[in-house]
Design a protein around this nucleic acid. Structure first.
Length: 286
DNA sequence: AAATACAGCAACCGCAATCGA
DNA sequence: GTCGATTGCGGTTGCTGTATT
């Protein structure tokens, strides 16, 4: 089936919007309301694609938008939500009134991902053969990964939100970027030439002495029985205490999947992040 | 001062989901 | 149930301003 273009491209303007165009769009929507994006440009006297009009309105012209820099509180909220939601920017934006998914996505890509990535790189033990300069403009897959074999798969979970979010191993940067949302998961599934891994996910509440501190997602690969934990602590620390067993977190980046190096891995009951503030420990298990 | 590199972000593109006839 | 149109989302591109050499 041939895709129908969202609008005819001929004669339409592209690129940055002018103040005049903004004004036309704003006035039209104020009178007639949002929607009917396909017919809107013609009716409003704009030489733009309807899709472009919608984007411009949603991201910049809406009156309920909050302008200005992301605050430290918002920064922290984005980090925490990204831990559990992944790259589902619209969902994250839903928790930040006045912010748009595009804004948050840009902020993540230009600020937070770098911040986290540099912390991980600095703190994590270096693997031989990892080229530090290998990553250029690509987006890192900055997620902590914990792997374990089938014998220790926990049976119970504290949540049931099933989100296909993670692929266990990808070396293609393009694939790595597409693993963070359910939608993108299905997208990349379509592109896989090998067997698709079926992943079951469980939300875990990370606590210390009954105090809720953080969330993460425990993903189990059904076929292989492998499982791994994916989360970002707000501290970006690479260590965690797991039933008093110190674990060494590695990170997935530059196409390298990290591994857990501790023995005696037990079913989790309580967690806390060793972020250097909440405790003074943080030794790695080697 | 000019050239180059880099960072930030607005906008575009393609795909999937949803809607409605 | 099917199919085309529309909408929404997330990845990516490329322009622009700023920093560095």
């Amino acid at each position: 089936m041939v895709r129908t273009p969202c609008c005819e491209k001929e004669g339409l303007r592209r690129g940055r919007w002018t103040a005049e165009e903004d004004d036309k769009l704003k006035k039209y929507i104020e009178v007639y309301g949002e929607g009917s994006w396909r017919s809107l440009p013609k009716n409003a006297g704009l030489l733009r694609c309807g899709k472009s009009c919608r984007l411009r309105w949603i991201n910049y012209l809406r009156t309920d938008l909050k302008r200005g820099n992301i605050t430290p509180q918002e920064d922290e909220t984005i980090l925490k939500l990204h831990t559990t939601l992944g790259n589902r920017w619209s969902l994250i934006a839903g928790h930040l009134p006045g912010r748009t998914d595009n804004e948050i996505k840009n902020y993540w890509n230009s600020h937070l991902s770098k911040k986290i990535y540099s912390t991980a790189k600095k703190d994590a033990p270096q693997k031989p053969g990892i080229s530090k300069g290998a990553r250029s403009r690509g987006r890192p897959n900055n997620k902590l990964i914990l792997k374990k074999d089938k014998t220790t798969i926990p049976k119970e979970s504290s949540g049931s939100d099933s989100i296909a979010e993670e692929e266990p191993e990808t070396t293609n940067p393009k694939e790595e970027q597409a693993t963070s949302s359910g939608k993108e998961q299905s997208k990349s599934d379509q592109n896989l030439t090998t067997k698709d891994p079926k992943i079951e996910e469980e939300n875990w509440e990370l606590t210390t002495d009954g105090e809720k501190r953080e969330y993460g997602v425990l993903s189990t690969i059904i076929d292989s029985g492998e499982w791994f934990y994916s989360a970002w602590p707000s501290s970006s620390s690479l260590n965690s205490n797991f039933n008093n067993e110190w674990m060494n977190w590695d990170w997935e980046g530059d196409g390298v999947l990290g591994q857990n190096v501790c023995e005696n891995f037990k079913e989790p009951s309580s967690w806390f992040w060793a972020n250097g503030n909440t405790n003074g420990e943080g030794e790695e298990c080697r």
